[in-house]
Amino acid sequence: MTRAEFLQALEESFEVDQGTLEGNETLEDLECWDSMSALIYMALADEKLGITVSGEQIINCKTVNDLLDLLDDKLAA
């Protein structure tokens, strides 16, 4: 799975329009980002890539790209 495909999966799960997320967005500015969406992101990381992400790792993320960086080992270029 590529970064773009994971981004698309995030958009579908967050129920936002395609193209809403490009990567540079700041999480605290996103209307769709809250504690539930953090759980959704964790579930997607586990389901799509088999990666377990902790709550503490997410708290250190400032942007959508930071979330994707946590999955870099398993995301295709």
Binding site: L39, E56, I58, I59
Partner: peptide, 10 residues
């Protein structure tokens, strides 16, 4: 749970 899902704040 803390190790997997929750933050210290939560």
């Amino acid at each position: 749970e803390a190790q997997s899902l929750l933050t210290a704040t939560q």
